[in-house]
Design a protein around this nucleic acid. Structure first.
Lengths: 187, 187
DNA sequence: TTTTGTGAAGCGCTTCACAGCT
DNA sequence: AGCTGTGAAGCGCTTCACAAAA
């Protein structure tokens, strides 16, 4: 949705156009936007206004600091590609790895630290979210360390389900499940 | 779900246990499993039997060949980690990159090919699904090439929405959207 | 007695249909 | 005239409550 709204610089879009672009019916689009208050007119919606109202309604209206934990191929891919992906809503504030070699050798626009400094750095820079990119065996332990460091949300790429206190938000990105979903769509 | 069932070798699990492990209510679990036919008894469910019925019902009961397109950091992460992740349900049959250097230098348990061989290789090895790991600028073009090669599903990691014929299944894994979801959960 | 399987009620999202605004 | 905003109906998933089975 945000993706769609940003593309329009002319500033107006109709629910019918959003339907074509997003695949959701114009009815649903209108109903959802109406929850934000009456914001459209007979020419359509003001993209700027709608985007801003959505951000405020969902709590996406301030920049949050994130970090990458585990700088193997996956983690370093995020270090590399990350900055332009984060769209001013998130800032990559640190990377961590237990292997000091990697921390020193890797190039990155964000500062890199050895894993034992996680607690200190996360607190100092008010880092809220973490991308957990360590191997499966190390994931639970790393997640607990993050929790103890005061992180509030974890995006978990390791194929294990983490046991953490309920106040910590966890989203799992499981490659195997994504492939299964694809296969089911074809079925 | 499959993840849960596989852990049990004793062969039995109750809907209440699944609730604790999965977070879904025992009511929902029982209703869902009941659609497979009556398969439980007063001691619980036979994990083997349920797992197999689910696989058959969802069309996950045969191995599918997959490939990785784009062997940058992200793509090569899958080459590396992939095999043990794929759980006998999928087989990594090929990797492609437009950079011939990478194709020759990278180590991989799966064979690697230059991008221009995509059509030939995909058809020869009956590859059904692709992990699309190329940069955003190259994603649409690569996706069209995959489509023309007869691929049936694409797992897209590039932050663009692909325009493809409707018979091709697409799942998008957008880092930015995952982070937004995390932030919304905390809101 | 424990746990499944299922009618019935509840709930939220989607779709319909159209009044109302510009 | 065109598009939004919204009551009303529809639909699917979840939850409740309990009878049936092992």
């Amino acid at each position: 949705m945000m993706r769609l709204l940003e593309k329009r610089e002319d500033g107006l879009i109709t629910s019918a156009e959003i339907e074509k672009l997003s695949g959701w019916s114009s009815h649903t689009i209108r109903r959802d936007i109406s929850y934000l208050g009456s914001v459209g007119c007979s020419a359509g919606y003001d993209t700027q206004k709608v985007a801003q109202l959505i951000q405020v309604a969902l709590g996406l209206d301030r920049k949050r600091h994130i970090c990458v934990v585990g700088l193997g191929r996956l983690g370093s891919a995020f270090l590399n590609a990350g900055v332009e992906l984060l769209n001013k809503e998130f800032e990559l504030a640190a990377g961590f790895d237990s292997n000091v070699n990697r921390v020193e050798i890797l190039k990155s626009s964000a500062p890199l630290y050895p894993a034992y400094k996680m607690g200190e750095i996360i607190r100092r820079f008010s880092i809220e979210l973490a991308l957990l990119c360590v191997p499966a065996e190390a994931a639970q332990q790393a997640a607990e360390k993050l929790a103890a460091s005061g992180i509030t949300g974890i995006l978990n790429f390791a194929p294990v389900s983490l046991s953490l206190p309920p106040e910590i938000a966890v989203r799992n990105v499981y490659l195997l499940d994504e492939l299964r979903s694809l296969a089911i769509m074809l079925h």
